[in-house]
Design a protein around this nucleic acid. Structure first.
Length: 352
DNA sequence: AAATGCGCCAACCGCAATGGA
DNA sequence: GTCCATTGCGGTTGGCGCATT
């Protein structure tokens, strides 16, 4: 145990290699080959242990090293190989001529891991990130699938229902067992009053579902859309359509995360009115709901990749993507409608 | 200009595997 | 089969340099 035997027998140099040491090692191995590494330092006139000499040769002095930045092809290959092999750096290195295991490992830890996270991919599993938000959604979903609700097989037809469905699963949706004729297709109904906004009721609903085991609160009287338009915000960091969803449903309208062109911005999707629940949104950044005539209109910004957005902040201590992740998390915790200014200040960054 | 923070990466460390006596 | 030296590997550290305060 402890320091390798070759290192404590005599006072040996440690730390960075000097040019002179490099030259001695290079000259010796070029002429004689390395042979037994433990004898190299003595024969080459170096005050180093054999292990240190070996490492220096493999990682720096070897003539077949490529050096320089990794190409896009190399980067893709490393990600692909890491997905298959995990942290087996030496095996990965055998597939990248001129690159050392140490170099690849450093590149992975300092660069590729962050890149993958920005794309919403867990660098360990290479699967979509399971975020705090999603974990909280799972709690909500458990509530929704409890005995308080029954499964719905139909769509919401009542045009003016102020109804809402929340789930972390991609359909079918779950609805309360005891519903009135008026709102029989509604998961939850919210009344409009002077004192409580629809948003606040949603906040209350989600909060109660997330933190208590009491029955889901639900208003008994259906009311039409509120007179004053209300902005609602939703966040979702799930990067793939095939994965879990966090979404909202007002009346019979909901949003779709398609990359419809709008003002040449492929990532902003204006209000969609779909009857087909299969095209449910998976990448919603936030909704805007307001009244147009007698109808409620919803606008939504979609985010195919969390990295496409960042939170403009005075603090630059963390990266834009970290800021975005923090913001989305905060928005979820504080729940929708409570933190509108934050979301309104979110800007779109196409350069990322 | 000095102090501090932070990312990168070369090198170290400990452990496992290997091979020879 | 056991011991021990050596090699290989992957996690971790520490120092350097650049950016920010």
């Amino acid at each position: 145990m402890g320091r390798h035997s070759c290192c404590f027998k005599q006072k040996l140099r440690k730390g960075l290699w000097s040019p002179e040491e490099d030259e001695k090692l290079l000259n010796y191995i070029t002429r004689h080959g390395h042979g037994c590494w433990s004898s190299v330092p003595k024969l080459a006139g170096l005050q180093r242990c054999g292990k240190s000499c070996r490492l220096r040769w493999i990682n720096y002095l070897r003539p077949d090293l490529k050096r320089g930045a990794f190409s896009q092809d190399e980067e893709s290959l490393i990600i692909e190989l890491h997905a298959a092999l995990g942290n087996r750096w030496s095996q990965i290195a055998t597939r990248l001529p001129g690159r050392t295991d140490n170099e690849i490992k450093n590149f992975w830890n300092s660069c590729l891991k962050k890149k993958l996270r920005r794309k919403g991919i867990d660098p360990t599993t290479h699967k979509p990130l399971i975020t705090n938000e999603l974990q909280s959604l799972n709690v909500i979903d458990q509530k929704l699938t409890s005995s308080e609700v029954v499964k719905s097989t139909g769509s919401i037809n009542n045009l003016h229902d102020q109804s809402m469905v929340v789930s972390s699963q991609q359909g079918p949706w779950w609805f309360p067992a005891n519903t009135t004729t008026t709102n029989q297709n509604s998961a939850f109904c919210f009344s409009s009053s002077n004192t409580t906004t629809v948003s606040d009721q949603i906040v209350s609903l989600i909060s109660s579902m997330s933190t208590s085991s009491s029955p889901t609160p639900m208003t008994s009287n259906f009311s039409p859309a509120p007179n004053n338009w209300e902005q609602l915000n939703y966040c979702n960091t799930v990067p793939s359509q095939s994965n879990s969803i966090y979404s909202a449903f007002f009346g019979n309208q909901y949003t779709e995360a398609s990359q419809t062109m709008n003002n040449n911005n492929p990532l902003v999707d204006q209000h969609h009115h779909h009857q087909d629940m299969k095209s449910w949104a998976s990448e919603i950044l936030h909704y805007t709901e307001h009244n147009q005539s007698s109808e409620t209109v919803i606008e939504a910004e979609v985010k195919p990749d969390i990295a496409n957005y960042y939170w403009r902040s005075a603090s630059s201590s963390s990266s834009p993507n970290q800021e975005a992740a923090t913001l989305l998390h905060d928005a979820n915790v504080e729940v929708y409608g409570k933190n509108l200014q934050k979301l309104n200040n979110m800007v779109f960054d196409q350069s990322l």
